[in-house]
Measured scan of single mutants.
Amino acid sequence: ILEEAISVVMSGKMSVSKAQSIYGIPHSTLEYKVKERLGTLK
């Protein structure tokens, strides 16, 4: 489920907030994982 949510957000089909409510994943977790994948994590 997490992988799917990350893919959807990264493809631009859904915002982090929308994915959070649909997949039930905490906003901070989703945002962290997306940034980690994009290489923008500081």
Rank of each mutant, 00 (worst) to 15 (best):
V8E: 15
L2F: 14
Y32T: 15
T40L: 11
Y23I: 02
T29N: 15
K35S: 10
M14V: 07
G39P: 07
Q20W: 02
I1C: 12
R37Q: 08
K35M: 08
V8C: 11
V34A: 06
G24S: 08
Y32M: 15
S21G: 12
Y23R: 02
A19L: 00
T29I: 15
G12I: 00
M10R: 04
I25C: 04
E3S: 04
S17K: 13
L30Q: 04
V9L: 04
E4N: 02
E3A: 03
M14P: 02
G39V: 09
E31F: 02
V9G: 02
V16C: 07
L2A: 03
Q20C: 10
S7F: 04
A19S: 04
K33N: 14
S28V: 07
V34Q: 05
Q20F: 02
T29M: 13
S7H: 06
I22A: 14
K13G: 08
Y32E: 15
E3N: 07
H27Y: 09
V9C: 09
S15N: 10
I22H: 14
V16M: 06
K13V: 06
E4D: 03
I1Q: 12
V16F: 08
M14L: 10
Y32R: 15
G12L: 00
I6P: 00
S28A: 14
I6R: 03
E3I: 02
H27L: 13
G39I: 07
S7A: 12
K35A: 12
L38T: 13
E31A: 11
K33E: 15
V34D: 06
G24A: 06
V8W: 06
G24K: 07
L30D: 05
S21C: 09
I25Q: 04
L41P: 09
Q20A: 15
K13D: 09
Y32A: 15
V9T: 03
I6A: 05
K33Y: 15
H27E: 15
T29K: 10
S11E: 13
K35Y: 03
S28T: 13
V16L: 13
T29E: 14
M10L: 13
K13I: 05
E31D: 06
L2H: 01
S11I: 06
I25Y: 02
K18H: 09
E36I: 05
I22C: 09
R37N: 11
A19D: 05
S21M: 11
A19R: 01
S21N: 10
I22N: 08
Y23C: 02
S17M: 12
G24M: 06
K13R: 09
L2S: 06
S11F: 05
I22S: 09
V16R: 03
G24E: 07
S7M: 08
A19E: 01
L38K: 13
S11T: 12
L38V: 11
I22F: 14
Y32Q: 15
E31P: 01
G12C: 01
M10D: 01
E36N: 01
I1N: 14
K35F: 10
T40D: 11
V9D: 03
G39L: 11
E3M: 02
A5D: 00
E3P: 00
A5Y: 15
K18D: 13
K42L: 08
L38Q: 14
S21V: 11
I1G: 12
K13W: 01
Q20D: 00
A19P: 00
S28N: 04
S17R: 12
K33S: 11
I1H: 04
I6V: 12
V8T: 11
H27V: 14
K13F: 03
K33D: 05
T40N: 10
V9H: 01
S15Y: 00
V8Q: 14
S15V: 02
M10G: 03
Q20G: 15
L41A: 14
V16W: 02
S28W: 06
Q20L: 03
S7E: 12
L41G: 15
Q20K: 09
V34P: 03
E3Y: 03
L38Y: 10
L30I: 10
R37C: 05
Y32I: 12
M10I: 10
I1A: 12
E31S: 09
R37P: 04
S28I: 10
E4C: 00
S28R: 12
A19W: 01
T29S: 10
S15D: 14
E36R: 04
Y23W: 02
S28L: 09
G39M: 11
S17C: 08
S21H: 10
T40K: 12
E31T: 10
K35L: 07
E31W: 06
K35E: 11
S7C: 08
